[in-house]
Simulated assay, not measured.
Amino acid sequence: MTATELVIDGVSLTAGAQRLVEDVSLTARPGEVVGLVGPNGSGKSSLLRAVYRILRPETGRVTVDGADAWALPVRRLARTVAAVVQESGAAFDLSVREVVAMGRTPHKRLLDGDTPEDAGLIGAALAAVDATALADRPFDRLSGGERQRVLIARALAQQPSLLVLDEPTNHLDVRHQLDVLGALRRLPATVLVALHDLNLAAYYCDRLYVLRDGRVTASGAPADVLTPRLLSEVYGVAAEVAVHPRTGAPQVTFLPDEPHAAAAPAEADASFR
């Protein structure tokens, strides 16, 4: 697995008469973890769909190592890009191991069986998301969080050079959020990930792009982007940003608005800190 460069250059996306993304440019350099953040409806998921070829740009280009992503042969694209989406709708009548093994398909010819190398990669992908114990369970009987981990493992087994993830920590408890993002951080691949949790984004991402109403509002290192002023403008809430004493990453604390703060009991107010 090697890292690749992703360039989104002046991309605009529409659905019918609705403009979803307007003239967005973004670069993810080889080996970087680049985060997309912003409120619901800001265009994060739409932009990711343009990368893994679900939503064709109306204008602009998406390139992978200089090649037009929309012109790549399907097999080459599948060997290069893996995607984990928010709602896959998947209800596979397969075991967890079989689902993860699907990630090896782009590297095989028709009717090829699994090799010892495949088995090792599948096992390593399951271990990376703490799903080894799930390997023989039916996928369609898993909880939402367990399914999410398995789908991430499938993407890891694919060994892409570019991994695109839309809210991969949805449905996950705190431990598995950290496990999954830590595994992504260690990959020798380029990662583009949409996240809602700004503190996770600040710690695990090299750079952030902030989307609002389909446009890039700010981009840069988390410490440069996550400011009280920007958070107020983009999210419409008051926030404090400090430097975490152990990690050195920005730590965002959202503040209750004044009317609610005045009425809330002291112990409830502490939950915001």
Results as ranks from 00 to 15, higher is better:
S143W: 13
G89C: 10
V74W: 15
V150H: 04
H171G: 03
I54H: 14
P57N: 04
P30W: 08
A69V: 15
V100R: 00
G123W: 11
L77G: 10
V96N: 01
P73V: 11
G103Y: 07
L162Q: 08
R104A: 00
L48N: 01
V74K: 15
L162G: 07
G113D: 13
L94P: 00
D68M: 13
V74S: 15
V34P: 00
G31N: 08
L126Y: 05
G144R: 02
H171W: 00
G145V: 08
G38A: 13
S95C: 00
R76G: 11
R149A: 06
G144E: 04
L110Q: 10
V100W: 03
V100M: 07
K44W: 02
L134C: 02
M102C: 15
E87V: 12
V51A: 10
S88M: 11
A128R: 09
A82S: 15
R76F: 00
D112A: 15
H107N: 12
L163P: 01
A124S: 13
L134V: 03
R141Q: 14
E58T: 13
D68E: 15
P73W: 09
L134W: 02
S46F: 00
L36V: 05
T63M: 04
L110P: 12
A90L: 14
V62I: 14
G60L: 12
T105I: 06
Q148K: 14
T80R: 12
Q86Y: 07
A124W: 11
P106C: 06
H107D: 13
W70A: 11
R49V: 01
V33N: 06
P39S: 13
A128E: 09
P57V: 08
R61S: 14
E146C: 06
A127V: 05
L134P: 01
S143K: 07
A127C: 12
R76P: 02
P57E: 05
A124N: 05
E167P: 01
I122T: 08
R154S: 08
A91C: 08
F139R: 05
G38W: 02
A131G: 06
A82K: 02
R76A: 15
L172Q: 10
V164A: 06
G60F: 04
A82L: 03
V74Y: 13
E87R: 12
V85P: 01
P39Q: 11
M102N: 04
I152P: 02
L77W: 13
S143F: 11
I54L: 15
W70L: 14
G103A: 02
G38M: 12
E58V: 09
R97F: 01
L134A: 06
R154Y: 10
P57Q: 07
P160A: 12
P106S: 06
P106E: 03
R97G: 03
Q158V: 10
R147Q: 15
L163R: 06
N170W: 02
S45V: 04
T169N: 05
P57C: 07
R56V: 11
V99G: 02
W70Q: 12
T132G: 14
V99M: 08
L163E: 01
D114T: 06
D112Y: 04
A125Q: 01
